[in-house]
C-alpha cells in the first residue's frame, strides 16, 4: 500500500499537466460556440423559413402540405407583394396564421421582409412568365358557376374524380364540402394557376389542351365555391359557431 503513496499524486499531477497543455493547444470540445441571437434578431432567410414556415410549406419550400413556395410559377404570378402580405397578415384562408407582430404573430416587420424577399430571390425566376400573359393572381371578374361546372368536368375530373381516368395522377376529390370549407377561393385559384409540380398537377397552361383563361379559372373557382355548405363565408368554416357535444 505504502508504495502507492508517493506515485499516485504524481500521476495525478502529470495528468493535470497534460490536460492544461491540451487546453492551451487544441480546440476543446466543451468550448462554447457563438451565442444564439434573440429570436427577434434572427435575420437569416434559411433559419427564419425553417423555424416558421417549413412545417406547412415543406423543407426548402417543396413537398409541403400547403402551397409550394419554391414553385417559380407561383412566385411569378403572385409577386412579392402578395407573398409579403400573406406572411404578415395570414394566408387567404384561416389555415395560415398571421406572422407579423402587429397582427398577433411573433415576427418583426424586418423579418417578414427577409422572408418575402428570400422566397422571391431564392426560388423565383424573374423572367419566367414574361410574355406568357398569365391570368391575374387575384380574381377580377365575376364567376359563372354553371360554366365552371362544365370546365371542371372537362379538365379536372380526369385527375380529381373518385375514379380518376389519369391513373398516374390520382389526386383525390376536391369537391368534398369538408375540403372546400378548409380552403379559400384564393387558395383554389392559386392551386389552379400554379399547380403542384411536385405532386403532378400542372399549372394553368397544362391542365387543358390550351392554357386556361382567366374567365375559366374564375368560373371553376366559383363553381367549387358554390359547393360549400356556407357559400357566404369565403374562408374556413370556423366562423360558424357550431357546438359539439
Amino acid at each position: 500500500m505504502s508504495g502507492t503513496t508517493p506515485t499516485t499524486p504524481r500521476i495525478a499531477l502529470v495528468l493535470a499537466g497534460c490536460m492544461m497543455l491540451v487546453l492551451a493547444g487544441c480546440r476543446a470540445p466543451g468550448k462554447p460556440g457563438p451565442a444564439e441571437p434573440r429570436p427577434d434578431r434572427v435575420m437569416e432567410f434559411a433559419k427564419l423559413y425553417k423555424q416558421n414556415c417549413a412545417a406547412c410549406h415543406g423543407e426548402e419550400g417543396k413537398r409541403g402540405l400547403a402551397v409550394s413556395l419554391s414553385n417559380p410559377v407561383y412566385i411569378a404570378i403572385a409577386g412579392k407583394e402578395a407573398v409579403l402580405n400573406a406572411t404578415a397578415k395570414g394566408g387567404p384562408g384561416k389555415l395560415m396564421p398571421a406572422f407579423a407582430k402587429s397582427y398577433g404573430g411573433t415576427l418583426t416587420d424586418a423579418q417578414i421582409e427577409v422572408l418575402a424577399d428570400g422566397i422571391v430571390r431564392h426560388w423565383g425566376q424573374p423572367q419566367l412568365l414574361a410574355g406568357k400573359n398569365p391570368p391575374s393572381y387575384a380574381a377580377t371578374l365575376a364567376g359563372d358557376a354553371a360554366a365552371g361546372n362544365a370546365a371542371y368536368t372537362a379538365y379536372c375530373t380526369r385527375c380529381h374524380a373518385e375514379e380518376a381516368i389519369d391513373k398516374t395522377h390520382i389526386a383525390g376529390p376536391i369537391t368534398d364540402a369538408n375540403y372546400l370549407a378548409l380552403i379559400s377561393d384564393q387558395g383554389l385559384r392559386t392551386a389552379i394557376l400554379s399547380g403542384r409540380p411536385e405532386e403532378g398537377m400542372p399549372d394553368w397552361r397544362g391542365i387543358a389542351p390550351r392554357p386556361l383563361t382567366d374567365r375559366q379559372v374564375t368560373d371553376i373557382v366559383a363553381w367549387l365555391a358554390s359547393l360549400r355548405k356556407t357559400p357566404a363565408s369565403p374562408n374556413t368554416a370556423s366562423s360558424k359557431e357550431k357546438s359539439h357535444e
Partner: peptide, 16 residues
Amino acid sequence: SSDPVPASFVEHRTPL
C-alpha cells in the same frame, strides 16, 4: 411551424 410531417406520412393522401 418548423417540423413538417415526414413525407412518408403525407404521400398518397387525398386533399382533404
